[in-house]
C-alpha cells in the first residue's frame, strides 16, 4: 500500500476560524450494558468554530464514536452541556434533533449509505425532501451539489453503477446539499483504496478551502494529517487537542 502523500505545507491554506458552532462542556455519556454501566465519555469539553477542519482520533473504545454521534445530534449526553449554534441540544426531543441534523449537519459515512434503488440525483435530494423543499428547487440544488463534487455527468446513475470513490462523492454531495453548518465524516476513506482515499481527502480539503466546516472521525494518522486541528481521545477523555 502506498501511503497517501501528505500535502506540502506550502499548498495548505488555513482559514481563520469564524463564530462558535459547537460548544460542549463536561459531557458524560453512560450506556447501561446489562448490569454494568459503560462510561463512554467521562467529561469531554470541546469548542468547534466555523471554518475549522478538525480530525477526531482515538483507538477503538476511546469514545470517539460516541463523541461523533453526540456532535452529529444522533444522541444526547447523559450529563453536560451541548450547544449547537447557541441552541441547547441536550434538551431536544427526537424530532427537533432530526431537524438539526437535517439543516445543520451533513453526514458522510464509511459505508456511503446511499439508497440502492435511487439514482445519484434522488439520493442527493433526500435531505431536501425532509426539509420540505419544492421538487424543482430541490433538483437544481442537487445538481449543483453533484457538480461541486465532480459528478455532473453521473446524476442518473444508481449506486451500483458507480465506483466506490464516486459513491462517496455522491454521499458528500448529499452532505453538502442542505448547506449545513458542519460536515461530519465518519472514516470516510475506510472502504476505499488509498488512491481513491487520497482523492476524497483532496475533495474535503477543497470543500474546506471553499468555506465549509469539516469534522473527520478517523483512526488513521495519515487521514487525520489533512485536518488543521487534531483532537485525540483516550478512555472517554480528551487526551490532546493540537493545531497543526
Amino acid at each position: 500500500m502506498i501511503p497517501p502523500a501528505a500535502p506540502s505545507p506550502a499548498s495548505r491554506v488555513t482559514r481563520t476560524p469564524g463564530p462558535l458552532v459547537i460548544d460542549i462542556e463536561d459531557v458524560v455519556k453512560l450506556y447501561p450494558m446489562g448490569a454494568e454501566t459503560i462510561h463512554a465519555l467521562r467529561g469531554v469539553s470541546l469548542k468547534i468554530r466555523r471554518n475549522e477542519y478538525l480530525a477526531i482520533m482515538g483507538p477503538s473504545g476511546s469514545g470517539k464514536s460516541t463523541l461523533m454521534n453526540m456532535l452529529g445530534c444522533l444522541d444526547t449526553p447523559t450529563t453536560g452541556r451541548y450547544e449547537f449554534n447557541g441552541r441547547n441540544v441536550a434538551a431536544m426531543d427526537d424530532d427537533e434533533l432530526a431537524d438539526i441534523r437535517n439543516r445543520e449537519i451533513g453526514f458522510v459515512f464509511q459505508t456511503f449509505n446511499l439508497l440502492p434503488r435511487s439514482n445519484a440525483l434522488r439520493n442527493v435530494e433526500l435531505p431536501l425532501v425532509y426539509s420540505g423543499m419544492a421538487p424543482e428547487e430541490r433538483e437544481d440544488r442537487a445538481r449543483e451539489a453533484l457538480e461541486a463534487v465532480g459528478l455532473g455527468n453521473r446524476m442518473h446513475h444508481k449506486p451500483n453503477e458507480l465506483s466506490g470513490g464516486q459513491r462517496q462523492r455522491v454521499a458528500i454531495a448529499r452532505a453538502l446539499v442542505n448547506r449545513p453548518s458542519i460536515i461530519l465524516a465518519d472514516e470516510p476513506t475506510g472502504n476505499l483504496d488509498s488512491q481513491t482515499g487520497t482523492e476524497i481527502m483532496a475533495l474535503f480539503n477543497d470543500l474546506y478551502e471553499r468555506g465549509n466546516t469539516i469534522i473527520v472521525v478517523t483512526h488513521e494518522e495519515d487521514i487525520a494529517r489533512h485536518a488543521r486541528r487534531i483532537v485525540r481521545l483516550r478512555d472517554g477523555l480528551l487526551d490532546r487537542d493540537e493545531v497543526q
Binding site: 444522533l74 427526537d94 432530526a98 441534523r101 437535517n102 453526514f107 439508497l115 435531505p127 425532509y130 448529499r174
Partner: peptide, 11 residues
C-alpha cells in the same frame, strides 16, 4: 438509520 441521520422524523 441513514434517513434519520439525514433528517427524517419519526412521522
Amino acid at each position: 438509520g441513514t434517513r434519520k441521520a439525514l433528517g427524517a422524523r419519526r412521522k
